[in-house]
Amino acid sequence: MPEPRWGFLIVAYLFLGGMSAGLFFVSALATYLEDGRGAAYSRVARVGALLAPWPVSLGSGLLVFDLGHWFRFYKLFVTFQWHSPMSIGAWLLAGFSGITLAAFWAWLPETTLPWLVRRLPKRLRFLSFVDHPSRGRWRRPLAMAGLPFSIGVGIYTGVLLGAVQARPFWNTNLVAQMFLFSALSSGCAVLILALGASREGLDHSDAKLLYSLDITLLVLELFIVLPYVIHGKLSPLSVQRALDLILGGPFTVAFWGVFFTLGLVLPLAIELWEMRPVLLNRAPLHPGRLLAGVSAALVLVGGFTLRYVFVSAGQMSTFQ
């Protein structure tokens, strides 16, 4: 392309959307897993649900203002173009937003809503119905309902790129999965950061869940990235030339140095190291706050860089 059309705002949106998807996925998983007394990982579930709606809202907001006519964004919701990944994504996002906002409402602490209601002006007092006593019962159904949506949101950002056959850098089957696993991994990372930064810190069982999940996701990502590159090099010339953008071309350092090493391999190594006690001796886990934070931050940096490289390199790649 003579000049790239999608820039930082799109990259930010893809990253933030993936983050929200990941946050809700982990929260939903944590809600689903029960240990007899109820949710096994209630802290993870709660923090995840409270955080989930917001990154994608910010990202969507940024995106709307990147449009030609920003107020026309509503046109995405008066039609359904089933053949357009963006249309599908818009509707998925609408559903996801609805469910995650509902889940947010369902997971709010006991005291928050009454506090808010007390501050409402008299005319809006009728809104007090939101402080429904049994809103907590919605948590599990919402988690189940939202799970497919979160996977949808996580994967569609990859489909958005992968469906474009004009851009050989994108047009593979693996891009969607790469973005999905990166998104879910970002969700884990945010939760590790959020819980780790809290007063109580990460307790053993939460850490075990998050680390196990993240390690799994990072390994899966590894097994997608490597075949993507290898298979690409065994593809028609246009794909091979597209891959040169990360094999000696301008995005080589960003891809291998930042995303792959700093954002994938290093966090994986750190997390495996932290999980030593569990893996070797079945001893409890006490992850160091600093290391946990660093590893999670690296995953986020990697996730952003992955999307930056893909969006930029893709627009440079061409069949001509």
Binding site: M1, R5, G68, H69, K75, L76, Q165, A166, Q315, T318
Partner: peptide, 20 residues
């Protein structure tokens, strides 16, 4: 009137035929 200017079509065109 229906174009929101998202630019997806510009990227999807193999011939670089479109512009904003």
């Amino acid at each position: 009137d229906d174009c929101i200017g998202c630019g997806y079509c510009i990227i999807a065109c193999p011939y670089d035929a479109r512009f904003f």
